Computed example of a mutant assay.
Amino acid sequence: MQHKSYTFSEIKQKMVNYCVYQDRCHQEVEQKMRDFLLIPEAKEEILLYLMEENYLNEERFARSYIRGKFYIKSWGRNKILNHLKFKGVPEKLVRSCFDEIHPEDYEKTLRKIYDSYFEKQTGKEYQRKSKTVKYLMGRGFEYGEILEVVGES
């Protein structure tokens, strides 16, 4: 397969567009640059440029990722943390960005998912609770937080 060759400035512009379209983490940008077969110095220069011009900002990426996965997909903190760590975002940074999720929204979402999932379960009460707790842990909610909700119901 023939690869189209680009000039350095064309590649730089493509990477800017890639970052402008949606917040990206360093790992995604580096992966994308592999497609262009650049020498290490050129990759470094582009990465530096993207960071200096604030096209690439790991904290902004983490914050928007956290908001999206919680408010749109209703993921818990553990699942979000694991996905961001997999993308190479430092755990310390992720934890400092969790203030994007308001505690009352977190509790409300957890309660809503618990109630709706619990209702759909069959069997004895303790079996239904057990299935619901497992489900919520799979969604990334913390065991302690789940137990608080279970205790209230």
Rank of each mutant, 00 (worst) to 15 (best):
L81A: 10
E52M: 13
P40S: 06
E104I: 13
Y6C: 05
G140S: 03
R60D: 08
S130P: 00
E53V: 00
V133E: 09
D105S: 15
K87D: 10
E91W: 03
F141E: 01
R95N: 15
G123N: 08
G138Y: 07
M15G: 05
G144I: 04
H3P: 09
D23T: 12
E107N: 04
I11H: 04
Y65Q: 05
E142C: 00
E100D: 02
K43F: 00
E107V: 09
Y117W: 08
I46N: 04
G144Y: 07
E52F: 07
E44I: 07
K131R: 14
E28H: 11
A42H: 13
E119L: 13
K131M: 09
R63A: 08
L48Y: 11
G151A: 12
E44A: 12
R77Q: 12
P40G: 02
L56H: 07
E44Q: 14
Y135F: 15
E100W: 02
F61Y: 15
V16S: 02
G151Q: 11
S64C: 04
P103Q: 05
K108Y: 11
E148L: 10
N82W: 08
K108M: 11
R95T: 05
K79L: 15
R24N: 10
K129R: 14
D99C: 13
K14R: 15
K92E: 15
K79Y: 08
F36M: 09
L136R: 05
K112G: 01
